[in-house]
Design a protein around this nucleic acid. Structure first.
Length: 572
RNA sequence: GCGCCUGUAGUGAAGGGGUUAUCACCUGAGGUUUCCAACCUCAUGUCCCGGGUUCAAAUCCCGGCGGGCGCACCA
């Protein structure tokens, strides 16, 4: 599956053509950090733009943009600080790494709170064995947190903060604003694209595991009791699913989305809908359908917040790589932020179909009698009466009040009666479905799938068969020669094309025409326009198609119309 | 983090204590050329970084940084 040589040739091309390069290379480079060069940045921008348009097209999802620097309390509530401040230790013999507190579990009531030295002592004095090899020697426990820490402000006044490990928290922070923006009606969603940071222990595999990476996340808020109705019955194409994998058993099921739902493989309609929309997006940016599969998470690998999770994996030269995670995060985040922040704006209102009439038997206090009797305690008595869950069968009775004393309540002090209450609805914490995309990983696979090594007249010939929507430029203008006015004519044409909104064109006039076609093919420009002598005489140019090198001659005015409407391909 | 391998122009490679480090492609300038990496002339550009050994280090040794693979980790 993995062809090292092809990866090397592809990486060399990506570097040579200014697509993906190692970052800070003149200083030796930093592992896990990459640059998008002049060509790559354009591809990346297009992929992200496609992604944004893909999700916002229905109007129920909006884009937001949040800071990457995140104060510590946010990430405490989200669980990122706690989850990653665990002490880790390694077996000195087999170098298996474990959470130190889990190893010490049977020797301390709450090992979670221990410091590194204490936990080292427990591991040592109890001769705890390595679950893997049985050895009893452990490296000193060290806290492992994959977040980059930083400080907001200077010196004493500074606050602990982290570079965000995911963009998702930004959407949760803005939930109150989103709720108002959408007129307080679920479901709705918010997307955000941007950088995320994880201080990986050992970044590997080129741009697959980066320390700073481009994420694109969607948080879709729903009412779990009234989930949105999504119809994907028209989705008939076969997809690959690996449901609920057992021990090393990766059974791939080839099935359509609609059948997967009716057969109960996809249990959550909303999750299924996002799987299907994710599929559509990946296809639209040029991922090959046969190289996509969805794998359900096992319980053990589930993120700390997720209830149900599917990975979308893409097959490339590095094997099957997780590129999208689609998780039902339930109410975990909003509820946790509510608890830590004391905010009361993280809920939604669910109106009942019919108002509920709640009737309740109460002991209604007669305050004119209670007051003079209990005086200072009267307030506590009233509170205790209203909080009675069960009414006493007989009066008088002894009532326990908050200061710990008991008072006698007699029949004169209260009136037993039934109170009716109209309840129109209730507040609840919305659930959230999160599709999280690793943009860099997707771009890698777009390039991988598009990169084709062929031969032309006995020579090696490479091209990127990028779909038009993610090509670094839409066209390239090539004067056949830089003389007789062909160069000027080409520059004028290039300017005309570039002045159209949303269309980008390059121009190249150095070296032979064949060489320029080759260079354009290698960075995936789908169309080349060649200005020749006939152009000067008749106002026509040749249009060359990258994928089969076919050419047609076309009137410039007509061509400009086709370019403007985005269907150059109809000329062929 | 650990172990093994590895680092020479933009790319791909050769060389392996001793003149000015070699080659191809690429890139740039000029010429030529009426559509697919053509040709001619010229030019730019390289031993990852820091120590050590040595009269002399790109070459040997040590460390760092980067890359690959395996183990471990991976919200």
């Amino acid at each position: 599956m993995t062809d090292e040589k092809r990866i090397e040739r592809l990486s060399a091309m990506l570097k040579r053509r200014g697509i993906i390069l190692p970052a800070f290379e003149i200083y030796g480079g930093v592992s896990g950090l990459i640059d998008y060069g002049p060509v790559g940045a354009s591809i990346k921008r297009k992929v992200i733009q496609n992604w944004i348009e893909h999700w916002t097209i229905n109007g129920d999802i909006v884009e937001i943009d949040s800071p990457t620097i995140t104060p510590e309390p946010v990430l405490i509530a989200s669980g990122h600080v706690g989850e990653f401040n665990d002490l880790m230790t390694q077996c000195e013999k087999c170098s298996s790494a474990f959470r130190a507190d889990q190893l010490a579990e049977n020797y301390h009531p709450n090992p979670d709170i221990l410091g590194a030295e204490e936990i080292d002592h427990i591991l040592d004095s109890n001769e705890i064995e390595c679950p893997n090899c049985g050895e009893k020697k452990w490296t000193p426990a060290r806290p492992m947190n994959l977040m980059f820490g930083t400080k907001i402000g200077a010196m004493k006044a500074s606050r602990q903060a982290y570079m965000r490990p995911e963009t998702a928290q930004g959407m949760f922070m803005l939930y109150p604003s989103l709720y108002r923006h959408f007129r307080q009606k679920l479901p709705f969603g918010a997307i955000q694209t941007g950088k995320g940071y994880r201080n990986e222990i050992s970044p590997r595999q080129g741009m697959i595991r980066l320390r700073e990476f481009n994420m694109a996340e969607l948080e879709y808020f729903i009412d779990p009791e009234n989930p949105p109705i999504t119809d994907i019955s028209m989705k008939k194409e076969k997809i690959s699913l690996i449901p609920d994998p057992k021990e090393n058993e990766h059974e791939v099921v080839s099935i359509s989305f609609s059948d997967a739902i009716s057969q109960g493989i996809l249990k959550d309609q909303t999750v299924a809908y996002f799987l299907s929309r994710t599929w559509d997006f990946l296809i639209s940016v040029g991922i090959k359908p046969s190289k996509i599969r969805f794998r359900q998470h096992e319980g053990t690998e589930m993120a700390h917040y997720a209830q149900d999770c599917w990975d979308c994996e893409i097959l490339g030269e590095h094997g099957w790589i997780e590129c999208v995670g689609i998780a039902n995060r339930t109410c975990h985040d909003l509820q946790s932020h509510e608890k830590y922040s004391n905010s009361n704006s993280l809920r939604a209102w669910r109106e009942f179909v019919e108002p509920k009439i709640e009737s309740k038997e109460v002991l209604a206090p007669k305050t004119s009698i209670l007051g003079p009797i209990f005086r200072a305690k009267a307030g506590l008595v009233l509170e205790a009466l209203s909080e009675l869950s069960e009414l006493p069968n007989q009066l008088p009775f002894d009532l326990l009040i908050k200061d710990g004393t008991k008072v006698e309540i007699t029949a004169e002090m209260v009136e037993r009666k039934t109170v009716r209450k109209n309840i129109a609805g209730e507040w609840f914490t919305p659930h959230v479905i999160e599709p999280a995309f690793g943009i860099d990983r997707i771009i890698w696979h777009i390039l991988d799938h598009a990169y084709e090594e062929t031969e032309k007249e006995g020579e090696k010939y490479n091209l990127l068969r990028l779909t038009e929507s993610v090509a670094p430029a839409d066209l390239i203008v090539l004067p056949l020669f830089e003389k007789d006015g062909m160069g000027d004519s080409a520059r004028e044409l290039n300017l005309q094309i570039n002045s159209m909104k949303g269309v980008t064109s390059l121009i190249d006039s150095s070296k032979s025409i064949g060489r320029r076609y080759a260079r354009a093919d290698e960075i995936g420009i789908p169309w080349a326009l060649t200005v020749d002598h006939t152009t000067l005489e008749e106002g026509t140019v040749t249009v060359r198609r990258r994928d089969d090198q076919k050419q047609v001659r076309c009137d410039i005015k007509e061509l400009l119309n086709h370019i403007n409407s985005g269907n150059v391909s109809s000329l062929f």
